[in-house]
Design a protein around this nucleic acid. Structure first.
Length: 259
DNA sequence: ATGGCCTGATCTTCAGGA
């Protein structure tokens, strides 16, 4: 069974590439982030024609998450239970579903903007709410994973130049501690293989030739419980999907499971 | 080759991304 996570940066703009990638990669379940569409705009029909059911949590121009599955889609949870809002708004940043033998959360963690910004405090609260929400599944016997765009680089090796990020979000001790607390529920970081270069970056800024120069970050993560991690046969970043005309700024992380 | 920001809406200018 092949699962993957991909921040597509607008499912509307990315749809042709998404459909091509789903077919060519043979992915059974894809967790999507940053759909940037309303529920009504979500391309359910196009995906159904390829054999995928869609579970969608989206409300407009920002955020939006989904789970696409060819192997069943049950027990969908829309939104993070007891998750914090921002400016009084509950944003669509998390959705969970059971796909065959595996339960998955597709998450788009708040960016944080700047250290000390209200959005940064929101990010930390959101990660704590995520930890609380997954505790039971993480300790269970069913393969379970929290996948998506975490907007945190777990270690200094996960950014191309640590010095450039000094004082910025994504690398702070508080953010990394929040990830450590999440792992403390029984989840481990399923680190993918890079298909080129040393580090398995998953995001490269559109600007300044970051992709050709491999100035990237590993912020799209797969955190799996013991039954999930024990079933992993292979995992890699499909950097080919970052190439060419009209890519997302994130590449898919692919995980092959023996389940 | 992998190439110098992109997306959606407030719509020709801006917020947000990370």
């Amino acid at each position: 069974m092949r699962i993957a996570t991909w921040n597509v940066n607008s499912i509307t703009v990315r749809l042709p590439r998404l459909l091509d990638w789903l077919e060519s990669s043979g992915t059974d379940v894809l967790c999507v982030q940053e759909t940037k569409c309303t529920d009504e705009q979500f391309p359910r029909e196009e995906l159904r024609e390829l054999g995928y059911e869609s579970a969608v949590h989206a409300d407009g121009r920002w955020n939006g998450v989904a789970v696409l599955s060819k192997v069943g889609l049950a027990d969908v949870t829309h939104g993070l239970p007891d998750g914090p809002g921002y400016d009084g708004v509950q944003e669509p940043r998390a959705i969970a579903a059971t796909c065959g033998p595996v339960r998955l959360w597709s998450v788009y963690v708040p960016n944080g903007r700047e250290v000390g910004h209200d959005h940064y405090a929101y990010k930390l609260r959101w990660l704590e709410a995520l930890r609380a929400a997954v505790t039971e599944d993480a300790a269970g016997q069913r393969p379970f994973a929290v996948v998506g765009d975490y907007n945190v680089a777990p270690t200094d090796a996960d950014v191309y130049d640590r010095a450039l990020f000094e004082g910025s979000t994504h690398v702070t001790e508080a953010e990394r501690s929040a990830l450590a607390a999440l792992r403390g529920t029984g989840l481990s970081d399923v680190v993918p293989r890079p298909l080129k270069y040393e580090h398995p970056y998953t995001y490269w800024d559109y600007r300044q030739l970051c992709f050709p120069k491999n100035r990237g970050m590993r912020i799209d993560l797969v955190y799996g419980n013991a039954p999930f991690a024990g079933a992993v046969k292979d995992s890699y970043v499909d950097r080919e999907a970052r190439k060419g005309k009209g890519p997302s700024d994130h590449a898919p992380v692919v995980v092959d499971l023996d389940v």
